[in-house]
Design a protein around this nucleic acid. Structure first.
Lengths: 195, 195
DNA sequence: ATAACGTTCGACCAGACTGGTCCACATAAA
DNA sequence: TTTATGTGGACCAGTCTGGTCGAACGTTAT
């Protein structure tokens, strides 16, 4: 799969020979459907952008004001999309950061747009007044974000090698909710303090 | 610098030609002092292990039982060592994970030993009874670790491009202590609750 | 049957780059 | 001058690169 090759080597060091070998097709096929390596790369970027948007970002409820709810939603939807196509997300890590490879202006714009959308989904419209009043809400915001990111990262590290789609995530979500409960107890206002 | 080349390309894809060019020396010199690329790599691994041990790990007070104190110490010492030689730490990220490159058994053992020491410094001898009694101490432990890691990671991302040694870290430590204060207020027992 | 056509393959190309060799040369000590 | 110690970089055989191209394939139309 070409996605995997670009994902693990970047544009420059990706090899068309390895791509065709892994795909089980002849060299001719690749250059019959794509005129060049660059064109293949652009096609994959476009495909990935569309995949991530339709299967992940568009499903997020941007009106959810509660930080933990919002982040939980993001984590869950990302996991689901990632289980559906892992390579796309690995590849996105490449082209979202890569400043070397020259892309058509229009495509580059789409990338920037998705970055901004992702940022907004993570930072905008959060009701920080739900946090304990004696704590700096911006700092609490970051602490919660880092905690959830940390869990997610550690979980993915624990699961390396396994096919995401084959894993029963139920126990992990259970564990995750345990962490969320602690975050709520520690950082949120107590119920009676509201209204 | 050879460290930088191996750090950013790994063993296989690192180029001796680029190394000598970056170092401003002739090809002959490299193979005059080292018989092969492999030997150069091994030398650098050995050098880095020694550097990290003497300038970082050995300075940590493993008897500090307070998690936040311990992690703060780790963060501070790592920053100092990293400012002294950034490349070594970038390179360590490569050879600590790299499972491909075959190293002499003795050297591989040293690497494993350092991994274990690092783990112990992070996880062992922590007094979890200082956390609020209504919270699962193991989960609190992880949440605090993820928070501190998160801040550190975000800070490094903010500072990419700048020479670490030239940065005045005072304001960042100030900011960092702000986060620590919140963690203490939220996760630790109150003073009067002790003894 | 045969011709035409859309596909598919992989041998092949020039060129870039690889780790490593080797020798000319510089400097300085003897 | 002779010898020893460094030092540079042209050069080597070999690998790998993105890309080309003619031959062969399976269908379908004639």
């Amino acid at each position: 799969m070409a996605l995997a090759e670009f994902a693990s080597h970047g544009y420059q060091k990706a090899s068309t020979n390895r791509i065709v070998k892994a795909a089980g097709i002849g060299k001719g096929m690749l250059f019959y459907y794509f005129t060049s390596k660059q064109e293949l790369y652009e096609y994959l970027v476009k495909y990935s952008l569309e995949f991530i948007r339709s299967r992940y970002l568009n499903k997020v409820d941007a009106d959810e004001p509660d930080l933990i709810e919002r982040l939980t939603q993001l984590a869950r939807l990302k996991m689901e999309a990632q289980a559906e196509n892992e390579e796309v997300f690995r590849f996105s890590g490449v082209f979202l950061l890569d400043g070397e490879t020259r892309l058509p202006e229009q495509l580059q714009e789409k990338i920037e747009l998705m970055k901004r959308d992702g940022y907004r989904l993570m930072y905008e419209g959060i009701d920080k007044s739900r946090f304990r009043k004696d704590l700096d809400p911006d700092k609490v915001f970051h602490l919660i974000r880092w905690s959830i990111d940390g869990y997610q990262q550690e979980l993915l590290a624990r699961l390396t090698g396994q096919k995401l789609a084959d894993i029963d995530f139920a126990p992990y979500w259970e564990e995750f909710y345990g962490y969320l409960a602690i975050l709520k107890t520690s950082f949120y206002q107590t119920e009676e303090g509201l209204g």
